[in-house]
């Protein structure tokens, strides 16, 4: 076996994975997006740009998604960071494992069941009833944008907590001592050392949550009462209800392209943020 043959053999498994899991499905979506809808739904082979020309019909869904995904990511980040910080920096090591497991435990149950639980918590007999008991009346939670946000933060919290936790846990604690030794008060140490050094974890967490949020449909459908329409919901309707596979594929492919573009821009920004601090301090 020549060296070249060996090299090919080594990349073969990764290549096969890439082909089967990524290239093939994407190709199917791409091909379908140039087709037409059959009279009884489904897909009829064709070559037309009609589906793409029809995209403005889902403009609102794209708009909503492009607003929700960054906002949901930000909300998850704001909740996850203090939690990860508490776990990584402030928690006694003997409790760490237990608390980390508690963060994952919800993952053992389907998101569907957990979202249903929130329907009851946020519903009229849940939190609003409790609030009424202490005199705050007329609070409506379920089927509001707030409910969707709560559901998203709840559902995606572990994905955000873990990368940040790892970044903070790996942070050399002597750097914090050094900062303190050099005269920085705890909050300034956090701003000047802890925060910038946890940026890689923050970046990873945000990326994971953002990508998944772009395709989210379950939480808006269950907790948003179907009144807020995202690309994910549009896709579910197109594939499972009106069975317009061709248009559905065009919407899906457009979503993928938007996602790739956003993620690329995001990665560039993060790379610049991490390398470009020669002149600009984070403070």
């Amino acid at each position: 076996m020549t060296r070249q043959e060996r090299n090919w053999l080594l990349v073969a498994p990764a290549g096969a994975w890439f082909l089967v899991m990524l290239v093939l499905p994407l190709s199917v979506v791409l091909v379908f997006s140039f087709g037409e809808r059959g009279p009884a739904g489904g897909y009829v082979p064709a070559f037309t740009l009609e589906q793409y020309a029809n995209l403005p019909a889902r403009l609102t869904a794209f708009k909503n998604t492009l607003i929700l995904a960054p906002l949901g990511t930000l909300a998850a980040l704001l909740i996850a960071y203090p939690l990860a910080y508490q776990l990584a920096v402030r928690t006694d090591p003997k409790w760490k494992t237990i608390l980390l497991v508690l963060v994952i435990v919800p993952f053992w149950t389907s998101i569907l069941i957990r979202s249903y639980a929130w329907i009851f918590i946020l519903g009229g007999r849940g939190l609003p009833a409790l609030l009424e008991a202490i005199g705050i009346e007329g609070v409506r939670l379920i089927y509001t944008p707030l409910a969707v946000t709560i559901g998203i933060v709840y559902g995606y919290l572990p994905l955000m907590v873990f990368p940040i936790y790892v970044a903070l846990d790996r942070l050399d604690k002597r750097l914090l001592e050094a900062s303190s030794d050099l005269g920085a008060r705890p909050f300034r140490t956090f701003l000047q050392v802890t925060l910038p050094l946890s940026i890689p974890g923050v970046a990873t967490g945000c990326l994971l949550v953002f990508i998944l949020l772009m395709g989210e449909f379950l939480i808006p459908a269950l907790l948003g009462g179907g009144k807020v329409f995202f690309v994910g919901n549009a896709l579910v309707d197109l594939f499972l209800q009106s069975r317009n596979w061709a248009f559905g594929s065009a919407v899906a492919f457009t979503l993928i392209v938007i996602m790739l573009v956003t993620v690329t821009i995001y990665m560039r920004l993060i790379a610049r943020l991490r390398l470009g601090r020669d002149d600009a301090q984070i403070m």
Partner: peptide
């Protein structure tokens, strides 16, 4: 520590990797 007129050189230097 941040109020003491004392500075330390750490064993592994503890230099801030994100700063010049």
């Amino acid at each position: 520590p941040f109020r003491r007129p004392v500075n330390m050189v750490f064993q592994s230097y503890a230099l801030f990797p994100h700063l010049t």
